[in-house]
Simulated scan of single mutants.
Amino acid sequence: MTETSPDSLIPYDEIVQEALRAVVGRVLGEVERGGGLPGDHHFYITFKTHAAGVDIPRHLIERFPDEMTIVIQNRYWDLIVRPDEFEVGLSFNSIPSRLVIPFAAITGFVDPAVNFALQFQAQGDDDAVEQTPAGNDAPIAEPIEDGSNVVSVDFTRKK
């Protein structure tokens, strides 16, 4: 006889996602307070472009109607971290832009320098949260060859 587990009345998935998104906020906050990225650290941050609270230029929404990945590495400025969002200046095709991204909109965070990655459910998505701190399971990030701060990230796991 197979027993089925009852539905939880505690929203564990939401609590875990909120806690892991707080990791992203804490890391960005430390970069903000420290005045820059330490060592070889750099971040690929993937987010839903139409999520509530996202404020990015229209030309980026048109180019990335669902999701986009930005790079926080050498060419960023005015990083401001708030409790529920961050703001950063980036250049796209030599056009300076200001982006405001709520942590709830983030679907992926990668620091390739230390092979660390977090993948989140999109709001309303039923996929599982994955944490990939080491090994061959880290997402593959490929820079887009247009001189912008956008990369293509493949979150599929290597076998």
Rank of each mutant, 00 (worst) to 15 (best):
I80N: 13
L60I: 04
G39L: 04
K158E: 10
I45V: 11
G53V: 06
V151A: 15
S94F: 11
A128K: 10
E87N: 11
L118Q: 00
V71L: 14
D7Y: 11
S94L: 11
L99K: 07
D125I: 05
P83C: 08
G39C: 02
T2N: 14
A113F: 02
A19F: 12
I72P: 03
T69W: 03
V23Q: 08
R26E: 15
G124P: 05
A52S: 14
R157M: 03
A52D: 15
P143Y: 03
A138P: 00
T156D: 07
G53A: 05
S148C: 02
M1G: 14
N149W: 01
I15Q: 10
S152M: 08
V31T: 10
V81P: 02
V129F: 11
V129I: 15
V31N: 04
L118S: 04
P139I: 06
N115M: 04
E130R: 15
G147L: 02
R21L: 12
V114G: 07
K48F: 09
Q123G: 03
T46H: 09
Y12S: 13
I61A: 13
D146I: 05
V54L: 00
A22R: 13
D126W: 10
R75Q: 13
E18V: 03
T49R: 01
V100C: 10
K158T: 13
F103D: 00
D78I: 08
D55A: 14
G124M: 03
F43A: 09
E3S: 14
G39E: 05
G89A: 02
D40F: 10
R75I: 12
T2I: 15
Q119T: 10
R157T: 07
V110A: 01
